[in-house]
Every structure is written in structure tokens, then in C-alpha cells.
Amino acid sequence: MNDSEDYLAPIEAAIEDEGLLFARDDDDEALRITFKSEGDRYFVVGYRDDPNFVMIGSGWALPTDADFERALEIANTLNVRKKFVKSAIWEEERDVLFTVELCVNDGLEVRPNFGRILDVLRDTATEFFGELRA
């Protein structure tokens, strides 16, 4: 892939395949897509200096009364158990981030699996907050 190529374009197509709307927010360093599904916000990001790297994710605020140690424990359990998804407590312990990080030769490789990626991101967030509330 050359530097001028919009290598997230196939992922835009994948988002359209899902019947979703999206917005682009590119700059000199990164290519970014933001979109919502069922009201929840997601992002896709790629970096111009590493066009084989693609990250798809969602970020959520932790409840203000959440036990940080418990949140870390749940995130670690999910990291062990779930395929694809990395769960992390983020930004001064206020947010939890769920990401799928991929190494691809072409964004087209993501397109047929995009629905599965969204499913696993959604399921991981549901499981995380379900465990946190339990």
C-alpha cells in the first residue's frame, strides 16, 4: 500500500454493508472512522506510518462507583477468555476500552469479518459491565 492510499475505504464499505452511517476524521498521522451501532459509538483507526495496522474499538465510561481492582480483574479475565478483543482500563481509570487490533495487507481482508468483529466488541462490553454490576 502506498502512503496516499485510503486503506480504510474497504472498511467504510464494510460499515455500509452493516447498514450503518459513519464519519471520517483523517489528519496527517492517522485515518479515522467513527460510527454508531444501536446507539453505541465505535471507531476504526489506522496510521499512515504503519498501514498494515488497523484498530477497531469502542470506549465506555466506567461508573463512578466502580471498583477499579474489580474492573481490572474482569478485563484480564476477558483478555484470557475472549477471541480477538483486548480490554483495558484507560485514561486515569475512568474509561474501559475494547479493541480489536489487526495486521492486514489490505482493508478488504476485514470486510467479510466486520460483522463478527462488531459482535465480539459488543458482547465483550456487555459481559464486562454485566460482571461489574454482579
Partner: peptide
């Protein structure tokens, strides 16, 4: 649409008697 989904709206038989809103979610 505000929840992120493309929407198609149709009106049955061109009348205003019945409306249909179509969208996709999780395929």
C-alpha cells in the same frame, strides 16, 4: 438514524395511511 443506522421510509400505496421504516442491525 441518530443511533447510527441507515433508514428507508416508505408510504404504502402512496397514501399516508400506512408508513414503513426499514433499517438493518447486526446483519
Amino acid at each position: 438514524q441518530s443511533e447510527g443506522h441507515r433508514v428507508e421510509v416508505s408510504v404504502a400505496d402512496g397514501s399516508e395511511a400506512l408508513a414503513e421504516v426499514v433499517f438493518r442491525a447486526r446483519g
